[in-house]
């Protein structure tokens, strides 16, 4: 199958349903993201944020519905999509007993990157860990591990970045450093979808806010159209409706 021609939407989801046994987590969900947008997915626990991200990341199959990422259909064209995705979750997806350099080199081999050493060095500098490149990852602080996780996610220069609660377990300073790293990474025009509970962090980073509840997108607003500029008030109003 060839990619479908759709010039602007990088992610398109129509009538998406996901069931785990008898439990329906996503119900006829509609969602789309344009190229270069930074979308924050907000919602209470169990709303379906992580499930949606895992489907977009090709880690989970939709039960019903249509999902297209970068023009490729999921799950049929998942291998083509994987090359275009970078994923950061609250887990680092890194081997604690390997050094930062070895972790990145391993993933670079899996992505079949050319000039591995140069790329690994560039990414370590990007996330500010070049001086600790030979240290085992388990000796890193949680904040450093998350920065390295971002480095792993952008190693192959993805066009879409999926972030699932990347600030979980980070203190204020570490969160700020993570945000700075993220801003640097997305300044290149990457499309980002970030699931988060942290509204202030989402407001700092994103330019569109989608609120998910009961397995559907129940509200969507761009930064310029938040009523009274109060995202928290808007979120409360929508989720309690």
């Amino acid at each position: 199958m060839t990619p479908t021609a759709h010039p602007d939407a990088v992610i398109e989801v129509h009538r998406l349903v996901k069931r785990f046994g008898t439990k329906m987590v996503l119900r006829q969900l509609e969602f789309s993201v344009s190229r270069g947008q930074f979308v924050a997915l907000l919602g209470p626990n169990g709303a379906g944020k992580t499930t949606l991200l895992r489907i977009l990341a090709t880690l989970s199959r939709p039960t019903l519905g249509e999902v297209r990422v970068a023009g490729f259909h999921l799950p049929q064209q998942a291998p083509s999509v994987r090359r275009m995705l970078g994923v950061v979750s609250h887990l680092p997806l890194l081997y604690g007993d390997l050094s930062a350099e070895d972790n990145l080199r391993f993933y670079a081999r899996l992505y079949d990157l050319p000039s591995i050493n140069e790329r690994v060095t560039a990414v370590l500098e990007l996330v500010g860990l070049a001086s600790r490149r030979r240290d085992q990852v388990r000796t890193y602080s949680r904040g450093m591990q998350q920065r390295l996780a971002i480095g792993r996610a952008v190693l192959h220069d993805p066009v879409i970045l999926l972030l699932d609660e990347p600030h979980t377990g980070l203190d204020q300073d570490a969160s700020q450093m993570l945000d700075e790293t993220l801003r640097q990474v997305v300044s290149g025009g990457c499309t980002v979808v970030m699931a988060s509970h942290d509204l202030s962090r989402a407001l700092d980073l994103a330019n569109r806010f989608d609120i998910i509840g009961r397995g559907q997108i129940i509200a969507s607003v761009t930064r310029d159209h938040i009523p009274n500029g109060d995202l928290l008030g808007y979120y409360r109003e929508v989720t309690h409706a």
Binding site: A57, T58, L93
Partner: peptide, 18 residues
Amino acid sequence: SVEKDRGCLDGLLLAPVD
């Protein structure tokens, strides 16, 4: 277990490899 504990199995599954 090494793959599961820190989410590394997802890291492997996200890579464009068979």
